[in-house]
């Protein structure tokens, strides 16, 4: 290393008094640890030992990093939950996101999966309680994102369902596609989602909605399910045989419409027949 080389910590003639007393490992770790610990705390003081090019205290230069972290994580949440962001407005969203990212920072660098705990977190925020549907809207947005990134799988050939005798069909297990997601809500969750993001969408009416998310090709699609279909798909997702799922669906269930939707949307990938 050359003494004349430019660069942080060497160029600029830092005043000796501002340098750390000795570059021992413990001291070094202290400054780094303080740098890291203060990043997610807006009110924490700027760690000591950080300087500008002239050896003066770094001051708001440190805030650039703190701000970058906060903005990057908030924007990741905004990208993942656009309807939630629009429903509560940018100021509230920034506030909620700041609280969430402090309590639940990402567990790994795949930001596409960040925010799995956001719906539950929203449900625990008292001032948002009047928007009772908000956690379910967040759950739907999470389901769309998971579907978007889910594994590809060739769809089940409908011909394999034809010609089965009743006992065989009732004992068969239908395998859901990795991209299939089911949201069962006490709120008109799909109507609220559309009303929020789609211009001209009708105003939501009160009532529960079950929503199926499928990915026939590369774009996830949302389908409003008819009576009983939510229970039917929930049973399939839990691994129940066809007959049990049919029983769970109950009265008013339109099997043919639901099967037709599942098959045409590529929501099923395989069929396991019962042992004879």
């Amino acid at each position: 290393m050359s003494a004349a080389a430019p660069g942080p910590g060497v160029g600029g003639g830092a005043a000796p008094a501002l340098r750390a007393p000795r570059s021992i490992f413990g001291k070094m770790k202290d400054c780094e640890t303080a740098f890291r610990a203060a990043l997610l705390q807006a009110e924490a003081p700027v760690p000591r030992g950080l300087v500008d090019g002239l050896g003066r205290p770094a001051g708001r230069r440190y805030a650039v990093y703190r701000n970058n972290v906060a903005v990057a994580l908030r924007e990741a949440l905004e990208t993942g939950f656009p309807a939630v962001a629009k429903l509560i407005g940018p100021e509230n969203f920034a506030h909620v996101a700041a609280r969430f990212l402090r309590s639940s920072p990402p567990g790994d660098p795949r930001m596409m999966f960040y925010g799995a705990g956001f719906p539950t977190f929203l449900a625990g925020i008292a001032p948002l309680a009047r928007l009772g549907y908000l956690p379910d809207v967040a759950q739907l947005e999470l389901a769309l994102r998971q579907s978007y990134h889910a594994a590809d799988a060739p769809p089940l050939d409908p011909a394999r369902l034809q010609g089965l005798d009743e006992a065989t069909l009732m004992g068969a297990r239908l395998v859901p596609a990795p991209a299939l997601q089911l949201i069962r809500s006490d709120w008109p969750v799909l109507s609220v989602h559309r009303f929020t993001l789609v211009a001209g969408a009708p105003k939501p009416a009160a009532g529960a909605e079950d929503v199926l998310v499928t990915r026939p090709a590369l774009d996830p699609q949302m389908h409003l399910l008819g009576p009983g279909a939510g229970r039917f798909v929930a049973a399939l997702l839990a691994g129940a045989p066809f007959g049990d799922a049919l029983e769970a669906a109950g009265d008013g269930f339109d099997l043919s419409a639901t099967l037709s939707l599942l098959l045409s949307a590529g929501a099923l990938t395989d069929l396991f027949l019962p042992r004879p």
């Binding site: 080389a5 340098r19 400054c31």
Partner: peptide, 19 residues
């Protein structure tokens, strides 16, 4: 890209990377 430096640094960035 840097917005600040650590007072305790004893290597220039260029030497650090070369090494």
């Amino acid at each position: 890209s840097s917005y600040l430096a650590f007072a305790e640094s004893t290597w220039s960035e260029t030497d650090f990377l070369r090494e």
